[in-house]
Design a protein around this nucleic acid. Sequence first.
DNA 1: GGGCCACCCCTA
DNA 2: AGGGGTGGCC
Length: 450
Amino acid sequence: MAVRVPAGFQALPLPIAQLSLAAVLKCGQSFRWSIFPLQISGNTPLQHVDPTHEYRLCLRDRVVCLRQSPDTLFYRSLFPTGVLGDQEQREAETLAWIRDYFQLDIDLVNLYRQWSATDPVFNRIQDRFEGIRMLRQDPFENLISFICSSNNNISRITKMVGSLCRTYSPALLHLAPPAGSDLVEEPYHPFPSPSSLAAPEVSAQLRALGFGYRADFIQKTAAMLVEAHGVNRSPKTSSEPSEEWLMTLRDKDTAAARTELLNFMGVGRKVADCVLLMSLDKREVIPVDTHVQQIATKYYGFRGPTKTGTMSPKLYEEVSSKLTAVWGDYAGWAHSVLFTSDLKSFASYGLASPSTPSTPSTPGLTPDRHSASSQDTAGIATPRDSMPKSGKRKRGGSNRSLETKTREAEIEETLVQLEAVVEDAISEGTVDLSLADRVKRRRRGTLSTR
DNA sequence: GGGCCACCCCTA
DNA sequence: AGGGGTGGCC
């Protein structure tokens, strides 16, 4: 079938199983992508393979625009007016950026195969959560964004990062929405530089913007970076020395890089591990938040939090290393798939998306309407050979009309499915927990949180 | 040196 | 009341 390339875009052949923008760009890795629904022309035979969304990210010198069909990634980049440049070379640069940012040299399908072979829990959910891979983000942006993430949720973090960019970095250019009949142009801001966040007044300003106690963390961390590494002569055009220094942490080993990150204000073990995994190439690292903790205890049978419900460093290390043992070298990547599958906003992912009709583009992704009530899963082993037995749900578990389901119902459904899947695996005894013991403990020095 | 508690703001 | 934690204090 001929690929229909949107005007102005370049085409890169790429199976959706290798990368799902819809999943990856809003699963809590990056908080800065703009997402626009596209108007799908009504009665074309190719309708079902046309992209449904456009995704945009403002880099330092350009805005990257992406669209995706089941087998192709479409890309283009837009520049401020008046800047001269060889368009062909620019697209080549953008392609290089894409390959790096999405780490396309890593064969995700092969990783899914390996995780499925060793982890029955993963095996059961893999088909529903295709194409979830780790981004290779800018370390400074990643660090600041995840300082914002404590006691927080994705939508609020997204708003905070947005106002951070609007307030502390000038707009690179203005663009109208892709399918907009409305011609309202919106500004696109790059992520702010360390020096622009380091000024003393930033702390109070961020507080006024609703950052809460994180306001001080951000200003102090930025100030620490600038203090230690200085500022450029021409800060607008290139990255600052401290940003370059953060990049060099990619060349250090995990423990050494983590120690450096833990020095910054507002950065504890969890945030440090997020940065290690998401921008410093430490692919085996598993950040343990309360959510992952729950997955570990409920689905993998690990021991839960001790008395107080708060996560002790000891427990953190235990959960993290055991999950690393389950998933191996790319454990952090696998964790991301499980984590995303359990995200509330992804409750309907793989079943059907409200805005996207079910298509042949995802063969084998049979919409799974099987579900069990939460009572069913409590202590009752589900049948091993088939789907969890269907139970009655509020909105009707076998209802094809997904539009009539509330988001809440879909959330519940997916959570219940996941739960059943894991209980299967546990009752089958196919989760090899003893693997955990083979994993060498990290050096003591790296365990201490300052 | 492990264990509490406040922190700031939003949603339930 | 508690959340996709952390820093400061016992």
